[in-house]
Design a binder for these strands. Structure first.
Length: 570
DNA sequence: GCCGTTTTCGGCCCGACTGTTTTCAGTCG
């Protein structure tokens, strides 16, 4: 059972209640709970098993009971009876831009529309005409919305979104009469994937800024164009919003549009309790603006330490800011080396020397070459003989004196299905850093994978557990694994958890990073680079580490070489 | 339905834009 399924069920209850229209606030509770579950770092089943569901923000007694029922039976009675009363695929219809609960209800009551198919038929037959509140433009909007929903345009990976944002900002600077432009939203929070881009602009010529924005290369559609807010959709499907904000409100605007929504709601509640009011134009006492030009000022005025965007998920950061216990987050400059990288000896594209040279340019103190092992045939993995040759080769490179940086001898050894390692112990013992990873039989049972991993980590030659959950974002879910047991085993054998920095992996996720550190484990932030270019992915690992509240002292590869080697020695 | 430095009841973020309206409801973020 996946968190996504639980979130979808809660969200459906929320939308159905909204369509029903009896209560204004109940639907919001379900939607809040659904968001909370969706963004949970941990498997909801594990939390339920501990009886701690109500400790999740937005989940109280009633919703906890419903989740438990869903986990054990696959059903929620309240959802079943709602579906009976309103037999409409509300999630499907709600996903159409421009369609909300009121429109769904109207179309169901008047035309019997229950899903995208019947909506399309009703449109084609012209049956929407004459309905109260639906004119020709709304009809067109719904028709276009169906196309968008069908095209399945979803979320973009952070690196792609960031690259687009950089291009937009550069262009706006040259033609948009822009004094200042920032990207806010989930991009600024460095989420793994983002659904749209939010820009904040300070300008001396609003008209010029708006025209520059709607005239950007690749704009397919202008969704809204007002005095301060403009929305466009690119041909790629990505939606971009721009808000024009005056200088005295820029910090408030940045804070507001960075979100997350739950962080903001929490912040506004604190403001209200202090007799203040917070909106995108500032922090107000009555009509008087108390703060607004800087984010720092707003947090300070609310009695909070400054909260970095990566932490703004309403997952404890506001309490920590109140009590001055926020983490001192890691940054890219804390990283002294990279402990996981491939070469063309296995499935990488560059030679060992090319990878080493590129790592040296980064002024690392050390770089670890860790190719795959023999059972990963598709990656041309190394057997004992080839690995021994590599050891000798790296010794020679180190003694050549060509680099000040130390090249570490490593391997990414496969964890076989019985928990044994795909390389003999006496060869592993000759290496500096051994990362053990799962690359096969990912659909085995939770018990099988957990047992297999715990066995592997008990091998005294293993230093790091690579990409611990095996997920590929937007592509492949995590394999089922009991991380609590794995963390326990890793703690007793002094094995670190990898934070794999590849933007499609980012494994461990933020919630699991926090739990790993809480369990007393060290984190190794590695690129797993398969090419020189991928060494740049370290920054995405750092973003993710920040989202996981990681401090430099939690991380293995912030240590100088000597300390690193001492730390992993067993 | 959730939640608590106005705590177990009574609130619940709030502003911008659009379309179909003659003053506002619905959607969105």
């Amino acid at each position: 059972m996946r968190n996504k399924d639980v979130a979808a069920a809660l969200s459906e209850i929320g939308i159905l209640l909204e369509v029903e229209g009896k209560d204004k606030f109940k639907p919001k509770s379900y939607e809040r709970a659904a968001r909370s579950v969706e963004n949970l770092g941990e498997d909801i089943e594990a939390i339920a098993a501990r009886g701690e569901l109500t400790s999740v923000p937005g989940i109280g007694e009633a919703i906890a009971k419903k989740i438990e029922s869903f986990l054990s039976t696959g059903h929620i009675e309240a959802l079943d009876s709602l579906r009976e009363r309103i037999p409409v695929k509300v999630a499907e219809l709600d996903a159409i831009p421009g369609m909300g609960p009121k429109t769904i209800k109207l179309l169901y009551d008047e035309l019997g529309v229950t899903d995208i198919e019947s909506l399309e038929t009703a449109l084609k037959e012209g049956r929407l005409k004459g309905l109260k509140g639906i004119g020709p433009k709304t009809e067109t909007e719904i028709a276009n919305g169906i196309g968008l929903a069908r095209s399945g345009i979803g979320r973009s990976f952070l690196p792609d979104a960031l690259a687009t944002a950089e291009q937009v900002m550069a262009h706006m600077h040259t033609v948009g009469h822009v004094r200042r432009i920032e990207v806010a939203g989930s991009v600024r929070r460095r989420k793994e994937t983002v659904g749209d881009l939010d820009f904040l602009v300070e300008t001396d010529d609003e008209g010029a800024a708006v025209n520059a924005f709607v005239g950007l290369e690749g704009v397919a559609d202008v969704l809204a164009k007002g005095a301060t807010k403009t929305s466009v959709r690119l041909r790629s499907g990505l939606q971009m919003d721009m808000r024009v904000i005056p200088a005295e409100s820029f910090g408030a605007g940045l804070q507001y549009f960075t979100g997350s929504i739950d962080h903001n709601v929490h912040l506004r509640t604190i403001a209200l309790k202090k007799g203040l009011e917070l909106n995108e134009y500032g922090l107000f006492k009555g009509k008087k603006q108390v703060e607004g030009d800087s984010e720092e000022g707003i947090y300070r005025a609310l009695g909070l330490d400054y909260i970095p965007p990566e932490l703004r998920e309403d997952s404890g950061e506001i309490d920590a800011a109140l009590t001055h216990t926020l983490p001192k987050l890691i940054s890219l400059s804390d990283i002294r080396g990279d402990l996981h990288g491939h070469t063309n000896e296995s499935d990488g594209t560059n030679t060992t020397e090319e990878m080493v040279e590129a790592a040296a340019v980064k002024k690392y103190d050390y770089y670890c070459i860790s190719d795959h092992t023999k059972s990963l045939k598709i990656a041309h993995g190394l057997d004992e003989k080839r690995l021994l040759n590599r050891i000798q080769e790296i010794d020679e490179l180190n003694s050549s004196g060509r680099w000040r940086m130390r090249i570490l001898k490593g391997v990414e050894v496969d964890i076989l299905s019985n928990g044994e390692l795909d390389m003999s112990d006496n060869v592993l013992a000759q290496l500096d850093v051994v990362t053990a990873s799962v690359h096969s039989r990912m659909k085995d049972s939770k018990d099988a994978i957990t047992e297999r991993v715990c066995t592997a980590l008990s091998n005294r030659n293993v230093h790091i557990f690579g990409h611990p959950t095996g997920r590929l974002i937007l592509e492949r879910p995590e394999y089922e694994i009991d991380l609590d047991r794995v963390f326990e085993a890793a703690k007793s054998s002094r094995v670190a958890m990898e934070l794999n920095s590849h933007p499609h992996r980012l494994d461990l996720n933020p919630g699991n990073l926090r739990r790993a550190v809480k369990a007393g484990l060290k984190i190794a932030i590695n690129t797993d680079a398969h090419s020189v270019l991928e060494l740049e992915n370290m920054k995405f690992g750092i973003f993710q580490a920040c989202r996981g509240w990681i401090e430099p002292r939690n991380v293995l590869n912030t240590l100088p070489l000597k300390d690193l080697l001492a730390a992993i020695r067993k």
